[in-house]
């Protein structure tokens, strides 16, 4: 068996009901298989990133999706990737950061954590609160390559100016 062709498909556009169903139906009809994917609504847009296995070329894959993406008003991007399934890394730390929304929180916090050895596997953030008092909330799961204590020290420093951060070790239970 030859090595499967994996592509990363990115679609972004104004959210409306039926996007996932229409896009995935077109892929299925075209002979594609889906792998890992992340799909979510961000600021009224719907965003999809999907690993897609397809034996043809990138151009042919784009042509499969274009009738649907154009009719739904989605921008489409196709990349050939060298990835494969079953390459998960297990996080060993979970970090939650929240604070009054201001420019630079993410850069400051993730910069300090990166220096302290954090490898981010998953990051999701949201702005809650109100227009007048926006509250920034960020969840990170990752690997503490230099130990949890190093990350805690880094967080203690960045949280001095009004940002709240909590760190919890993750010890995955296999049962």
């Amino acid at each position: 068996m030859s090595k499967p062709n994996w592509y990363m498909l990115t679609l972004v556009g104004r959210d409306r009901p039926g996007i996932v169903a229409h896009v995935t139906h077109a892929l299925y009809e075209g002979g594609c298989n889906l792998g890992e994917a992340s799909m979510m609504r961000l600021g009224g847009n719907f965003t999809m990133m999907m690993m897609v296995r397809y034996e043809g070329a990138a151009r042919a894959l784009a042509e499969l999706v274009e009738p649907v993406s154009e009719s739904l008003g989605l921008r489409l991007h196709v990349d050939r990737i060298s990835g494969a399934l079953h390459h998960h890394l297990e996080p060993d730390v979970r970090i939650t950061v929240s604070g009054a929304d201001r420019a630079g929180i993410v850069a400051q916090v993730t910069g300090a954590l990166a220096e302290a050895g954090l490898n981010i596997l998953n990051l999701e953030s949201d702005v809650a609160g109100s227009e007048d008092e926006p509250l920034y909330i960020m969840h990170i799961e990752g690997q503490a390559t230099e130990g949890i204590e190093a990350l805690q020290s880094a967080l203690d420093i960045v949280t001095r100016n009004g940002v709240k951060a909590s760190l919890a070790p993750m010890d995955t239970l296999i049962g």
């Binding site: 297990e90 996080p91 979970r94 919890a168 993750m170 995955t172 239970l173 296999i174 049962g175």
Partner: peptide, 11 residues
């Protein structure tokens, strides 16, 4: 909240 996996749900 904690992280779990299972022999019956590999990977």
């Amino acid at each position: 909240v904690g992280r779990e996996g299972c022999l019956s749900v590999p990977d």
